[in-house]
Design a protein around this nucleic acid. Structure first.
Lengths: 241, 241
DNA sequence: CGAGATTTTGAATTGGGTCAAGTTATGTGG
DNA sequence: CCACATAACTTGACCCAATTCAAAATCTCG
């Protein structure tokens, strides 16, 4: 699942690497694009359940996901773990480590995946030279903050089915952005992982899936999802307690 | 409560404004400090429940809190609201707006407060000139990401009393950092606001306070908190379900 | 001092968790 | 390619932590 896609095909001058989000600044010169390209020479591949980095690792680079997908999770000392996100092609991962130069969470491949390593020192140097790259880097970090706060809203004030609806709609939207179907897709994570992300137990996730199916909102066959009634799903987001 | 404090008194060359976190880069020259000072000429004061910015406002500046405290909250269309943080003197607020140039949440003063406005264009320009300022800005943004993910862990996998313990310990630590007592302090927020932040109802917050008191961990008199057994509070964080 | 807001506490309810059993996938080695 | 083992998923029954509803107590401030 999750085939490699260039999100911004028209701007994909970056040959060595699909820099995706990083390629967004719209006003780069040919020369600047070349410099960006030089930055991202290291490409690495991962198989399912390989670690991209672990909590406690020294921070050196951000990573641009070229293909595949990862999960990021925090571990509490007493064994609890919380998945903080599922990242897919075109997204930048590792931002949390800038703060202390130590990775605060760990990133695990959900399937065969490729990343481009972006040495952060070089990225900072380049962004001092290219204001639009600087602004773009800031936007990426800010976007992560906004995303995280959205999840706080979800975890703090939504009921189980609302959380799952929000999750499915978010996936749908991200697949669509990548030129894939927004209504039919494969999940690459287990019920347990979805539950960890949404603050629910796996049985609750399973029941919510079943309920959406009996309501005629979706078809579920284990990890194959078909959204039948997108509007209905959206509506089920607004039933507050 | 929450008196104005200079967090880094020895480095407080910034005369016009307690730039606090922004002053942290340890290796600034006299000249660079002057430039930083020039950046932050606008100072504004707020009374309890004044808005610093509202959701939807155009983004122009970050704000360094000189004194007092603010809450930030997101509003869901259906009326639900989630407090995403309580910020106090020395903290930077407004980072979420960089991503879209529109403020994604709103910031409300919890008491009489002063902020320094930091025009973001100028901050970006200056951070291109001063690498250690650039790095510092990145660290501030990354720290916010780490903080948010900590709250996800709290909301996603802790029970009510653990959440309140984590909240109290966090407050305690932040007061202590500011040279105030970490064991005796005033809350500037209501039970309802604490509940919104922690994903709980106000009654649950109240009951948890009462229970900590009967356990001998704290003394509560409405908004006056005294932590009696700090270790005990920490221990109550590790009772996972 | 008094009115409205906030907080506490009790009792009843319930959404989601827990435990358990059965079913369906997935992957591995022969 | 099949058989088996293991992991993942579904469903039911029961339970409990937190919510809801209600009432009383306390606080705050004009």
């Amino acid at each position: 699942m999750l085939q490699p896609v260039s999100i911004y095909p028209s701007k994909s001058a970056c040959s060595s690497c699909n820099l995706a989000e990083l390629c967004l600044p719209p006003d780069l010169t040919r020369e600047e694009l070349l410099k960006l390209d030089e930055l991202s020479t290291l490409k690495r591949t991962f198989s399912r359940s390989d670690y991209l980095y672990r909590s406690g690792d020294k921070f050196r680079s951000l990573f641009a996901i070229r293909s595949g997908s990862f999960k990021t999770q925090i571990l509490h000392e007493d064994g609890r773990e919380q998945i903080t996100g599922f990242q897919m092609a075109g997204e930048i991962i590792g931002l949390d480590a800038i703060s202390t130069d130590i990775h605060a969470c760990e990133a695990v491949a959900m399937e065969s995946s490729e990343v481009c390593e972006l040495p952060f020192n070089k990225l900072e140097a380049l962004s001092r030279e290219i204001p639009s790259l600087q602004r773009h880097l800031h936007k990426i970090m800010s976007r992560e903050i906004v995303r995280d706060q959205g999840i706080m809203l979800l975890l703090g004030s939504m009921r189980a089915e609302e959380r799952l609806a929000a999750f499915l709609l978010n996936l749908s939207q991200r697949f669509a952005t990548r030129g894939l179907s927004g209504t039919q897709f494969q999940l690459c994570m287990s019920r347990q992982e979805i539950g960890s992300y949404l603050g629910l137990k796996l049985e609750t996730v399973s029941r919510a899936f079943s309920h959406f199916q009996t309501e005629g909102l979706i078809n579920v066959k284990v990890r194959t999802i078909e959204i039948i009634n997108l509007e209905g799903l959206r509506a089920s987001l607004n039933h507050s307690r």
